[in-house]
């Protein structure tokens, strides 16, 4: 393997993972995505329309944001089962703030801070109380969901005003033409803000993982925690940062989702953590730690988003969708293992 995988020098090797196995995984995931898109395009003519493409972007942005945070945690060798609940709690906190008269932007920031605080707590439980990530974040999953339901009395908070809906429903470069009959005609629906947000977050996260010391420490911690510690990596601090970022991104995703609905729903986001984990794993992240990347997770998120959307367009029930996505996750990991065993 060492002989055939002499990586190319230069700009490409900087962008692509140096490990050829990871690169191969990325290509195969991308190919899967392309096949899905082509298949759905044949099945339903509306699938490739501009509007539906933008819908997919919108739908994927939430999974994508959660997936980015999840990827960082998974690379450290952990897992974050709480992101779905933290998403709901953050969105609800923002909604309550807005309802209480706080302007939208500070309210959303507070919501994100709430998510970050949940993540920090996760990190604290994992590093200082030495509780396995699975159990620690399972606890937070219940705590955050319970808090969101308790705070709102399990009732959605609606009528949050137009400004609250801008993040989820607004779009850049939206072109609208007034027709003579007085009705507006949308010429180009624009790039949705959530999609732009996702791209920005993905680029920043990727930069952090590849070009900053903290990113290297995240990989090292997941690869061999004891070695990282002996090499002078502050392992606990690295994990705290990863969990906090995951919580904060769950907060961002919560705000995007609630903003899109213009309603704060405390019961939103159930099982979203599984979509996020699936996105990361399909994208090549290893639950053993040390392996994974943002570009892979983005592809994984789009595979899930396209699959959901395409099956919806084809009129497949959401129950069947769950079955299909379940098989996709198992299949993706199985193929990955086959390749690594070779």
């Amino acid at each position: 393997m060492a002989n055939i995988s002499q990586p190319s020098q230069g700009a490409w090797s900087r962008l692509l993972p140096s490990n050829s196995a990871t690169a191969f995984h990325r290509v195969s995931a991308l190919l899967t995505l392309a096949i899905l898109v082509i298949a759905f395009a044949f099945a339903s003519p509306a699938f490739l329309s501009v509007n539906n493409t933008l819908t997919i972007l919108l739908q994927t942005s939430v999974i994508g944001l959660l997936g980015i945070g999840m990827t960082m945690v998974i690379i450290t060798g952990g897992i974050d089962l709480s992101v779905g609940s933290v998403l709901a709690l953050s969105g609800t906190v923002t909604g309550m703030m807005v309802k209480a008269g706080v302007p939208v932007v500070p309210a959303m920031m507070l919501g994100v801070c709430m998510g970050a605080a949940c993540g920090l707590f996760n990190g604290f439980v994992v590093t200082k109380m030495k509780i396995t990530p699975f159990v620690a974040t399972l606890g937070m999953m219940l705590i955050a969901r319970g808090a969101a339901l308790q705070l709102t009395g399990a009732a959605p908070i609606s009528q949050l005003g137009e400004a609250f809906g801008v993040l989820g429903n607004g779009a850049l470069f939206r072109v609208v033409e007034m027709q003579p009959n007085g009705f507006p005609k949308v010429i180009f629906p624009g790039i949705p803000y959530p999609a732009i947000l996702l791209v920005i977050v993905a680029i920043v996260a990727s930069y952090m993982l590849r070009r900053r010391a903290i990113g290297r420490h995240i990989y090292a911690t997941g690869s061999n925690e004891e070695a990282a510690r002996l090499s002078g990596v502050l392992v606990d601090r690295t994990k705290l940062i990863a969990y906090t970022l995951s919580g904060a991104l769950a907060g961002v995703a919560g705000n995007v989702l609630m903003s899109r609905l213009i309603t704060a729903q405390p019961s939103e986001g159930v099982m979203y953590e599984l979509d996020a984990i699936a996105a990361a794993v399909i994208g090549g992240a290893s639950l053993m730690g040390g392996v994974g990347g943002i570009s892979g997770t983005m592809i994984g998120a789009f595979i899930i988003g396209v699959l959901r959307n395409g099956l919806n367009m084809g009129g497949v029930s959401s129950f069947i969708q769950q079955i299909v996505i379940g098989f996709v996750v198992i299949g993706a990991v199985y193929i990955d293992q086959l390749r690594n065993r070779r």
């Binding site: 490990n19 990989y219 090292a220 690869s223 061999n224 070695a227 002996l230 090499s231 040390g290």
Partner: peptide, 11 residues
């Protein structure tokens, strides 16, 4: 270290 203390996934 006897275990070498290397992170296997890094170069």
């Amino acid at each position: 270290y006897q275990t070498l203390a290397l992170a296997d996934h890094l170069d």
